[in-house]
Design a protein around this nucleic acid. Structure first.
Lengths: 337, 337
DNA sequence: ATGAAAGCGCTAACAA
DNA sequence: TTGTTAGCGCTTTCAT
């Protein structure tokens, strides 16, 4: 692997000139510029970015830390982040943590060790140890906490109003006449799940439906577990006539379980999802859902991160974006017996 | 951001000692070790890895370059790569190229610029310009080409036998009595698609079915386009009684289109997918598919990459892994009229 | 066991 | 316009 020195020697100039040709060509005479460029081409020389970045204390890389990169839900978010990042000269690297705390920390540390300029965190756990006696912003790298952020942290956050979103979803089901509304919740302890459960409860209460904790099952945001949870819900007597799954992926598990049980959707049981993944319209039946503004989430993350990357101080803000109830074919009025 | 020098000053030792405490603590007396450690803890000092990596010419990072990270198909592959990488002290960073050549090159260049130690390439295009008059291995960073590699390159490759896999899938459909077997192909020009088309053709010929190019449609490995392609196939007269989609995701599009057309699966039309994504069993009906050995693919990638990261020369090998026909509910004997 | 010093590869200020 | 030089932050000889 050639260094700038050797290129300089080959082109019979000093290393600084090679650097100039590569970064500020207008500062170099045409003659030397051509000489250097031809050597660079011949040798296939590429600067060592570790050195460049060390020198410039800047990597132009952003780390997006994601519990399961594969979840359909992340698709649009990642795209919109990446598009904006690239416009501004940054690359987005994805870190898939598989929900493991050790991996969350490892990826997050890439910002503290200067291997990336900033991070966007989609996990619920906070990957840094914080000394609350000292100013937060000085301890933390440029970062944004998205989708699973609590309100206790003094950092930029991007969220939807999970309480309201789940409340409206539940209200919609109640308005269809459903009285027994089962829930397939996500990970307990995650802020999103807690908030959505709270919203569900609010809607149940204000619809004067008796709150029944047996109707709450947990699917851990996992398709397989959601299928099992649905089997459990369908074993209850009286049986729920609607299921609210707190993610579209879990809703797929619900649909699958109901199909296997030969329960008609939505005639016998309605299914409402959450997220608005792109598969939704293609499922059978097409999935009604509480859609998140995925593209806006990605955009907001970048809007809050980029200023920090330019040296502006971290702000304690919480960008709350609008959700939307999308009604397709998987929900219908409650059956009358 | 503190540097090692300032830590050294605070602990009243020299920078080298701080470095030793962090990397080879046994070389330092207990007294100084404690002093340094306590300062490190107090200040939250973290070494600048750009400097460390520059000095050590090693990053312990691997870049996985993926056309669409979100594709369900990548899930298991990514996991198995990551598990092995971590065992060996490496992190895996994911680069989502959205099938854009510029992004493929940008991520791949991170290896040439030393920001990562090696790459695993899942794209069909080769992101480096090669001078064929010179030894390949010296021009390329440690790398493995997986899933979409052609046989012209002198680098380690991981693949399944796409020709055989598609042939067997088609033979299976033919054995069910299907004579009109539609195809929803992937990107034309990608090696995987070309090979699978060849395999399809082989099976058609050896089953003495008349090859009809009108039955080949293209879905670009995209769910929406696959839905359109299926609509087209269903508009043909006589109509195909089976559809072979070259990815499970496209098969979802097929299912969706058929549902909308009220065509019964598998009674009227059989659908066979390709890949073996984890959603498969949850679809309605559960999807029959030609499964790839996703976990083995990830493992093989790491097995071929890790030696290169340890300085061993690049080998021109092609690891071909076994596929498997998985029969579920979406395929059945051809209808008799 | 510890410190001094060189150097990883690059860039930018400064001088010429 | 070009070269010289210092230094980004770290690690590792080498010397003590």
């Amino acid at each position: 692997m050639l260094s700038i020195k050797e290129i300089a020697k080959l082109a019979d100039v000093c290393p600084a000139t090679v650097s100039r040709v590569l970064r500020h060509p207008h500062l170099v005479s045409e003659e030397k510029r051509d000489r250097v460029n031809s050597i660079v081409k011949q040798t296939g020389y590429v600067p060592n970015n570790l050195a460049v970045n060390l020198r410039n204390t800047k990597t132009y890389k952003i780390m997006a830390i994601i519990p399961e990169v594969i979840r359909a839900y992340n698709n649009v978010i990642i795209r919109s982040m990446q598009d904006i990042a690239i416009e501004h000269g940054y690359s987005v690297l994805l870190g898939d943590t598989q929900s493991l705390q050790s991996r969350e920390k490892a990826f997050a540390d890439m910002a503290r060790t200067r291997e990336v300029d900033g991070i966007v965190l989609f996990c619920s756990r906070f990957p840094f140890d914080i000394d609350h006696t000292v100013d937060l912003a000085t301890q933390l790298p440029p970062m944004v906490h998205a989708c699973e952020s609590t309100d206790m942290l003094g950092i930029p956050k991007v969220n939807i109003d999970n309480v309201a979103a789940a409340r409206e979803g539940t209200e919609y089901l109640a308005s269809l006449g459903h009285k027994l509304i089962g829930v397939v919740a996500g990970h307990s302890l995650t802020p999103s799940t807690e908030s959505r459960l709270a919203g569900y409860r609010q809607a149940i209460d204000s619809a004067n439906i008796n709150y029944n904790p047996n109707l709450i099952s947990t699917g851990n945001y996992d398709l397989n577990m959601a299928e099992e949870a649905t089997q459990y819900l369908m074993s209850l007597r009286p049986r729920p006539t609607a299921i609210f799954a707190f993610s579209d992926e879990m809703a797929i598990g619900c649909l699958s379980a109901l199909h296997k049980l030969k329960i008609k959707i939505p005639e016998e049981v309605s299914v409402l999802g959450f997220d608005g993944i792109s598969y939704g319209p293609f499922l059978n039946p097409a999935l009604s859902t509480v859609a998140q503004p995925l593209q806006q989430i990605g955009q907001a993350c970048m809007q809050l991160l980029l200023p920090q990357l330019n040296g502006e101080p971290m702000q304690d803000c919480n960008r709350v974006l609008p959700h939307e109830l999308v009604i397709r074919q998987s929900t219908a009025p409650a059956p009358v017996y």
